[in-house]
């Protein structure tokens, strides 16, 4: 029975990529939110601009 280490490596690598990718997405979203909050705090009356990230939809009222 051959071991197929390449398949094992591919599976673990892919999983790491997906999980890492989702984690990074969350971190980026967090950074953007913090930056947005800071900017909002500085200039209250400026028109809002949606962040350009392909993240989740930004709810609007």
């Amino acid at each position: 029975m051959p071991d197929n280490w390449s398949f094992v490596l591919a599976a673990y690598g892919l999983a790491a990529l997906v999980l890492g990718g989702y984690w990074r997405r969350l971190l980026r979203l967090e950074r953007e939110l913090v930056a947005l909050e800071r900017r909002r705090g500085a200039t209250r009356d400026e028109p809002r601009s949606a962040p350009t990230s392909p993240g989740p939809p930004i709810p609007r009222r």
Partner: peptide
């Protein structure tokens, strides 16, 4: 990991709502 991701995402969603 599920708990971590979900907790983080919930907090981010809340912040998003607060900001907007």
């Amino acid at each position: 990991l599920y708990g971590y991701f979900t907790a983080k995402r919930v907090r981010l969603l809340r912040q998003e709502e607060e900001v907007f």
